[in-house]
Design a protein around this nucleic acid. Structure first.
Length: 568
DNA sequence: GCCGTTTTCGGCCCGACTGTTTTCAGTCG
């Protein structure tokens, strides 16, 4: 995935153009950068399929530059701009509060080109001598240096969500607030997030702000006002708080949930109706005609309420205008988890503990799927062990009420697409998951054929974590997704959305493509202990971001319906 | 440089906070 690299270069171009006081172009480059950054498919593919210009904010000129970056890794245009102003804009602007204009001034007056130059000048108290700067700027530069050097790595959704919920809970209990919601990319449930955004309505904004910046986990206060506060937690995560009145809560919720490009489009629609839309409401002249709830604002703009997960400026606004939005799968629609590991292999809990935890979550079934491999060496249960495990499942089923434990296994697809398992054993299982755990670097054709062969074996019900990617650490295996979708339908093999935080595989983009191709999905946690079962909502979020409805996901079915489907 | 239910030119989202000023520019989201 070169997406981040492309976005970085586009942003850098925007920075330099802004330093040169070029109008409007920086905005165009930034918009294109945002689009590429939030794209869920590799920009290389978009380029190869000649779809660059279909991207929002990408026209003739930027498409050419993206193509160049994809092919060569650099942009001649950027190199030319850099020669005109030879400063490390990217590093310098990564300091909180430093933008292109400040960088330019410091270059002109003090010849500051790098982060090191900047730090030296700040320490020697040279910066305060420049008009527009002062001692506080110097102090801020030195304070935020470490943060800037470390870079701003995005956080996994599954890691950020509990932290945000904890803050929300604290504000609810002790922050003098009426309403409190998590907003931003977290509310949209993006797979990674940059920071945590929280919105509250409060009758005592000062008290709320005081409480917020005084929370125990706060390491650093970046800004504190009665409508807006920003802090850095001890864990280096940035949290922004917005405080509004109740009559503006809905419009503020929309505004801070984003995405930015979704909002901009809404504002433009408001303008065509001679309205003005901002975080305080929807206004006709000076009169607020909506704002208390999101539903009302969307309604006045002539469309249905759009679930946060869809607000990515794809086609959701057009579809909402036509009242054709899908009825997305609900977070509580899942009836059971079909990929769970136990102590029999590398999990931490036994079958009974897992079954009880699943029952407590309201599930009516759970499928035990420890690794099984006929090759003793491969690190899975062997033939004898899995038979013993099946016996334990049967015994536990007799003992427990209100939850059905299904017999399953996760089997490895070898490099040629064969299942490393005895057919006689697979026949005795309720559900067989097949997945790839080795030889990731095969050519696209071979990898695709490998997956399709496994699906055609006649024994496989679910293809586990289909692309093999791990967020930030392992790229997707090369797969022709259209061939995969076709095989999925033809063989009745369901594609997994693996809900483990660093997997989320399929991702939102592929989930939508699969749904549109007519495939059905299954959402599993791949839990290795009972706490992991709670990752389910991350998988449901991916499905929702992929526009999936309840009928698209097979483990929303009751046990009887599920087993009928599997047997067929 | 992009874009269009005011289309191929003429616009381009908008408000809060900060640090510097003494009314505002720059930055951020």
């Amino acid at each position: 995935m070169k997406n981040l690299q492309v976005a970085k270069i586009l942003n850098e171009i925007a920075d330099i153009l802004e330093m040169q006081n070029v109008e409007f172009k920086p905005r165009a480059y930034r918009k294109a950068a945002r689009t590429v950054e939030s794209l869920s498919e590799p920009i290389e593919e978009v380029y190869q399929e000649k779809r660059l210009k279909e991207l929002s904010g990408v026209g003739e000129s930027i498409a050419t530059k993206i193509a160049e970056v994809v092919e060569t890794g650099t942009s001649q245009y950027l190199e030319k701009l850099k020669k005109q102003i030879p400063v490390d804009v990217e590093a310098l602007t990564s300091i909180e509060g430093m933008g292109p204009k400040s960088v330019k001034k410091l270059y002109e007056k003090l010849k500051i080109k790098t982060l090191d130059d900047l730090v030296r000048a700040a320490r020697q108290r040279e910066i305060r001598e420049i008009k527009g700067f002062g001692p506080k700027t110097e102090k801020k530069i030195l304070e935020h240096l470490e943060l800037a050097r470390r870079g701003t790595e995005r956080i996994l959704l599954g890691f950020a969500l509990p932290i945000a919920e904890e803050i929300k809970e604290q504000l609810r209990k002790r922050g003098a607030v009426n309403q409190v919601e998590i907003t931003g990319s977290l509310r949209r449930m993006k797979e990674t997030i940059g920071d945590i955004d929280i919105l509250v309505s409060s009758i005592k904004p000062e008290k709320t702000a005081d409480f917020f910046v005084g929370m125990e986990d706060v390491r650093d206060v970046l800004a504190k006002g009665i409508t807006k506060c920003s802090v850095i937690l001890k864990s280096s995560i940035r949290v922004d708080l917005r405080i509004v009145e109740a009559k503006s809560f809905g419009s503020a919720l929309m505004y801070f949930t984003g995405s930015k490009d979704h909002n901009i489009k809404l504002r433009k629609i408001a303008m065509t109706k001679s309205y003005k839309l901002n975080e305080y409401g929807l206004f006709k002249k000076d009169e607020q005609i909506a704002g208390e709830t999101e539903e009302k604002v969307y309604g006045k703009l002539g469309m249905d309420w759009i679930p946060p997960e869809l607000r990515e400026n794809q086609d959701e606004i057009e579809v909402a205008k036509k009242h054709k939005l899908p009825k997305l799968i609900e977070y509580d629609a899942i009836k059971g988890d079909l990929q769970v590991h136990t102590k029999w292999m590398d999990g931490q809990n036994n079958i009974e503990q897992i079954a009880k935890a699943a029952k407590a979550l309201g599930y009516s079934y759970i499928c035990i799927t420890d690794h099984y491999s006929k090759m003793v060496i491969a690190g899975g249960l062997n033939d004898h062990q899995i038979k013993k495990e099946i016996e334990e499942i049967e015994k536990t089923n007799k003992k427990l009420e209100g939850i059905e434990i299904l017999k399953g296994a996760e089997v490895d697809i070898d490099q040629d697409g064969a299942l490393q398992a005895k057919k006689s054993i697979l026949k005795d299982l309720d559900i067989v998951i097949a997945s790839v755990h080795s030889y990731f670097n095969q050519p696209k054709k071979k990898m695709t054929k490998r997956l399709v062969s496994a699906m055609e074996s006649g024994y496989v019900n679910i293809l586990g974590h289909p692309t093999g990617r791990k967020i930030r650490t392992r790229k997707s295996n090369p797969i022709d997704m259209n061939d995969l979708f076709e095989a999925s339908k033809r063989t009745g093999t369901y594609l997994e959305i693996n809900a483990f935080p660093e997997r989320l595989d399929l991702n939102d983009f592929h989930a939508r493509a699969a749904k549109e191709a007519g495939c059905r999905l299954v959402i599993n946690t791949d839990a290795h202990n009972i706490e992991h079962l709670k990752f389910m909502r991350l998988g449901v979020a991916v499905a929702r971001r992929g526009w999936a409805e309840q009928k698209d996901v097979i483990n929303t079915l009751a046990l009887k319906g599920l087993m009928k489907l599997i047997k067929s």
